[in-house]
Write a protein that binds this DNA or RNA. Structure first.
Lengths: 358, 358
DNA sequence: CTGAAAGCGCTAACAC
DNA sequence: GTGTTAGCGCTTTCAG
């Protein structure tokens, strides 16, 4: 193992090729003002010595790193990892490298160290891909984080002065609830996500509002709180069955929790969808293969990621060009309903309609 | 918005505090040789100006970035995202930032650009967290990638001269197959992963060998190939039911595919586990809530990530201290069986045993 | 205890 | 076309 700990520098290349470092710099940057034969000679040396320019040195002098900071939390969860997936692919295409930081908990409020770690590495922009939980957006209100690095948030309530890209969870909740109503269900319960999550609260509010708008009841014993896990879904379902016996459908705030509701139906409990309509949220890969296949609300995390990267690059360019008046937009994307077997209710049977396949 | 595009430099702090940059440097690095009152004055200025040292400049001069390059592929899949999750957490604790690159495809062989992007940013080490698929390890054999950056691979066949940390997929396949045999099943089929994946081949080889070692048959029409997706699992299951009617159990190479085998049983098809024993692989979060709950092989991706980071830091230190003789180890971890309902076979009933819960 | 000088690897701005 | 000078923000070395 040849431990050539030191990297090949532009200086070495220059002296080997018998030119100045300037000329080498011109060659590696594809500048036109180099004599063809000089260029060729330099390129030969570069190849031979396996010279690789230092992005670090470049970043330092150009005040630009072509690196984006990405902050996530709970990467093992579906949402965050799908979002990161999209960000990684899109950023790559846009010519950016990614500096990744993971928060220890979703509701971490002590974000300054994280932020500084990114800023000290001269990231050109930051994507804050942590869902809004508890008070974890507070640090961005005014005080602590104040550095002038372009920043875009994913998944949060729109706020003046902060750029964000979110999926409309309220609309998703409406879609789900309205769909169950249209399918002929009349006693619709709800299993929520953890209510310190903004997304969970949005979905729940939509459930409540939609029922009321249709003259149906959304009482306090018609919902139960889960924590996104299948286990919590099973517990919540049991609670609901006990306190809301008339329940003939349930809107579950994510697919993993919905799975346990279906699971119950397969062996014991009410049959889905005849006795119990079920709609989930997320459209995870497995949902189409649950028994019965799960109707759910699809979030296009990939598109969300794409738009986020687009926004951050836009902000970066604006800042570079000294544009002062750019607006910090809050972009909101619409989810869509994917109908499968689990919500094929009385109304649908009457009409003899067949479910669409996702 | 105050567009202070330029960052606060050590020079500015120095002049503001009326000392040399040297002294400021000593303060921020916690060196002892600074007069208490000087230190305090400097620290005040640092706070007031919100000075943040540039990690970039430091990396340049110290020839060390405290940054690890991580290469992944298919982040939307369970395995890769769980591994990344573990790497992120462990690296953070070890004081490293992460530079993330995602390959466009699992079997990408053109890895030099990726590698160079990392090296040019002076990463101290690289974790290659891409599963071994097709010939995607070829570039590391000898030629293209030759730079002296410590590197650890995840999930691959042990190779001389490369450091790796893997889970023993062959052992996992043995555990699964042997378990089904012990449960009294005698006609055990197999749904494989895509066979250009090393892991899939390992699991399959173990299935075949274990059956033979027990005097059972592993014929060519006793297995079918999937692509890890639930949809492919459903297709493979149908094929197997058709060509291997006596089949009374099946070892499925991952949980997502196993899900569709269970799904079939819930509504139509053989009942699990009475008529068909099923064992999966991975132990995804949902498995315990399938109907019936799925027996599966658990890979401790988190531990794997932990050990990987440990190895890479070990290599980095060795290289720094000029240790030449360090061995590049191939570390192999054992998976474990998590028994649930789906494999509670004839033998188990005879003994009246209850399944353990995962 | 503190400061001055040199330089990490590169590029911008100017000479020639 | 090409080289020289300066400097990005910091630390190392060596004076004092």
């Amino acid at each position: 193992m040849s431990s050539s700990l030191s990297r090949v520098t532009i200086k070495q290349v220059a002296s080997e090729a018998g030119v100045s470092t300037q000329t080498v710099s011109r060659v590696i940057n594809g500048r036109p003002d180099v004599a063809p034969e000089t260029r060729e000679r330099v390129q030969d040396v570069i190849q031979r010595m396996r010279y690789q320019p230092s992005a670090l040195a470049r970043s330092l002098i150009q005040q630009r790193s072509y690196t984006l900071g990405v902050v996530t939390a709970g990467l093992k969860h579906t949402g965050p990892s799908r979002a990161l997936n999209g960000i990684a692919e899109t950023a790559e295409q846009a010519g950016y490298a990614l500096l990744l930081k993971e928060l220890p908990r979703f509701d971490t409020e002590d974000v300054l160290p994280i932020f500084n770690a990114l800023v000290s590495r001269h990231v050109d922009g930051v994507i804050w891909a942590v869902p809004e939980v508890g008070e974890n957006r507070r640090p961005f209100g005014s005080l602590p984080v104040q550095l002038d690095v372009p920043m875009v948030f994913i998944t949060m309530e729109a706020r003046e002065g902060l750029a964000s890209v979110s999926i409309d969870n309220y609309e998703g909740g409406q879609l789900a609830t309205r769909h169950l109503i249209e399918q002929g269900y009349r006693h619709i319960g709800h299993i929520t996500g953890p209510l310190d999550w903004w997304e969970a609260r949005q979905r729940m509010a939509a459930w409540r509002d939609t029922l009321k708008a249709h003259g149906l009841v959304a009482a306090d014993h018609h919902w139960a709180e889960g924590d996104w896990s299948s286990a919590s879904g099973a517990r919540a379902a049991e609670q609901l069955f006990a306190r809301y016996p008339e329940m003939d459908a349930v809107f579950v705030a994510n697919d993993q929790m919905a799975l346990s509701v279906l699971g119950a139906s397969c062996q014991r409990g009410p049959r889905v969808p005849e006795e119990l309509g079920v709609v989930g949220f997320d459209d995870i890969a497995e949902s189409a293969f649950f028994s019965p296949p799960l109707t759910t609300i699809q979030q296009d995390q990939y598109n969300l990621a794409r738009i986020t990267v687009q926004e951050i690059t836009r902000l970066i360019e604006s800042q570079r060009h000294g544009v002062e008046g750019f607006r910090l937009k809050s972009i909101v994307l619409s989810p869509r309903l994917v109908m499968r077997e689990s919500s094929r209710g009385p109304e649908d049977h009457k009409k003899g309609g067949a479910p669409a396949s996702g």
